[in-house]
Design a protein around this nucleic acid. Structure first.
Length: 420
RNA sequence: GUGAGUGUAGCUCAGUCGGUAGAGCUCCUGACUGUGGAUCAGGCGGCCGUGGGUUCGAGCCCCACCACUCACCCCA
């Protein structure tokens, strides 16, 4: 075992895998751009209070999953999610007065102190989007449509969309009491966790996986039956748009997201292939959060996609053995090195990807390396070439060789770039 | 925090009845001193997770700890 290793729940993304991440990010950025989203980068560390106020003091995330650091007076935490920091930045910079800054996206690491398992790490990555300033149900639908389009572009299938409305400040309190009233006489039959939930956050009982609890909850009142008029209309409208987009979804009256700021629309994308953590991403509406963060009373909508989980769903790496270079330069002895370095410099400045071999190597060894690395061309420089004032170019695919005078390096570069 | 499983070479794994370690793959080198792939040969690479115990002797048996994996809670 190495003396040092990555901390529990963190890991390195090594060459060979990182290309996969780059591809996902490239596709995502291009697609988000098409929908008018602009990137925002916020610190990964924020005042602890920010998350307590937004995510909610009684949520698991805040209660036991934050990496919190107390330095003298200040308590700061690594961000466990991305929405609160973005809203904070939005308010701080007054982005509501900046044209085109109401649709934002971020890509980056999040941190939660949990026991790692399949699909769960302490440092994980998310792509998230936020639309701030509109409560139009079309925003909900359009943003969900964008998400599904993104997954389509990435080649992810076999996911299912779960949709719910969790009400708002008008109707949820009433529903909460109705649920409590239903649960109260049944507490003795429910598990210890559900008893705790009854006290802290009754809606969470729907997360319980204990059979007896599920049985008791079968006839429990549903939020959907307690929506106020505005929430009902909003939800119906979102559904109507999704239907028109031809998007399939299932209504899950038990869907409750793990953050307190959600109102009205809440949704998740599930996959069977993720192990016990079957949620690929989650999102919803958060009208009221901007005001809570000290800004104007602006509504908001957003989602966040777990990148590690996404990677698990990506089609098998078609081991695209992308050659690491267009040409390998092979000096055969010490005197040839300078000529080799100069050739490398010229080609690189012309835009060619060049591997310049250092150290003593036989020609056999150079060619073997080019072959192993999948580099299609080798520029040989030995005694003969130095004497002739040029190079020998070998095409590894055909085995053909031809002399290349120093003066024709630039033309060679053009030739290589044309092929690539 | 709780439970179960697993720790031997960079990777995947053998290792018999307890006798101080092996294979395949990868990497490097060589096979008429300037020509790759196939083949062959060789080389690099191990505190057998760590520390104790039993034993003449421990990769193997016992104990503790650590790490990893999966699961619970909950979530991305």
């Amino acid at each position: 075992m190495p003396r040092y290793q990555a901390l529990r729940g963190t890991r390195d993304i090594l060459p060979g895998e990182v290309e996969k991440w780059q591809r996902v990010e490239r596709i995502a950025r291009a697609l988000l751009d098409r929908y008018g989203f602009r990137e925002i980068r916020t610190p990964i560390i924020e005042p602890t209070e920010l998350f307590v106020r937004s995510v909610g003091g009684s949520t698991d995330i805040v209660r036991k999953e934050m990496f919190t650091l107390v330095l003298s007076e200040d308590s700061v935490s690594l961000r466990p999610e991305g929405t609160a920091p973005v809203v904070r930045a939005f308010v701080q910079a007054g982005l509501d007065r900046v044209a085109g800054a109401d649709r934002l996206y971020y890509i980056g690491p999040m941190f939660r102190y949990e026991r790692p398992q399949k699909g769960r790490q302490r440092q994980f990555h998310q792509i998230g989007v936020e639309v701030i300033g509109s409560d139009d149900p079309l925003v909900d639908a359009e943003t969900i449509e964008m998400l599904l389009y993104l997954l389509e572009e990435l080649g992810v299938s076999e996911t299912s969309l779960a949709l719910n409305s969790v009400g708002d400040a008008v109707c949820r309190p009433g529903y909460r009491e109705a649920l409590r009233a239903y649960l109260a006489p049944r507490l003795a039959l429910l598990c210890a966790d559900c008893n705790r939930r009854y006290e802290e956050n009754p809606l969470r009982v729907f997360d319980c996986k204990v059979e007896t609890c599920r049985g008791e909850l079968a006839a429990a009142p549903a939020m959907l039956d307690h929506l106020c008029e505005d929430c009902r209309r909003h939800f119906d409208s979102v559904r109507s748009y999704l239907d028109r987009f031809g998007i399939e979804y299932m209504i899950d009256p038990r869907l409750v997201r793990g953050l307190d700021y959600y109102v009205r629309t809440a949704f998740e994308l599930l996959s069977e292939q993720l192990g016990a953590q079957n949620s690929l991403m989650g999102g919803g509406r958060y009208d009221g959060l901007v005001k809570e963060m000290g800004g104007k009373d602006l509504p908001g909508f957003g989602w966040a996609l777990g990148l590690e989980r996404l990677m698990m769903l990506l089609p098998a790496d078609r081991a695209e053995a992308t050659a690491s270079a267009d040409i390998l330069i092979a000096p055969l002895d010490a005197p040839a090195r300078t000529a080799a370095a100069l050739a490398a410099r010229t080609l690189r400045r012309a835009g060619v990807r060049v591997l310049l071999e250092a150290g003593e190597r036989s020609l056999t060894s150079h060619l073997r390396r080019a072959d192993r690395l999948g580099v299609p061309l080798v520029l040989i420089i030995g005694e003969q070439e130095v004497a002739a004032g040029g190079y020998t170019l070998r095409d590894m695919r055909s085995g053909e060789q031809r002399p290349v005078p120093v003066s024709e390096l630039t033309r060679l570069a053009e030739e290589i770039l044309r092929e690539a």
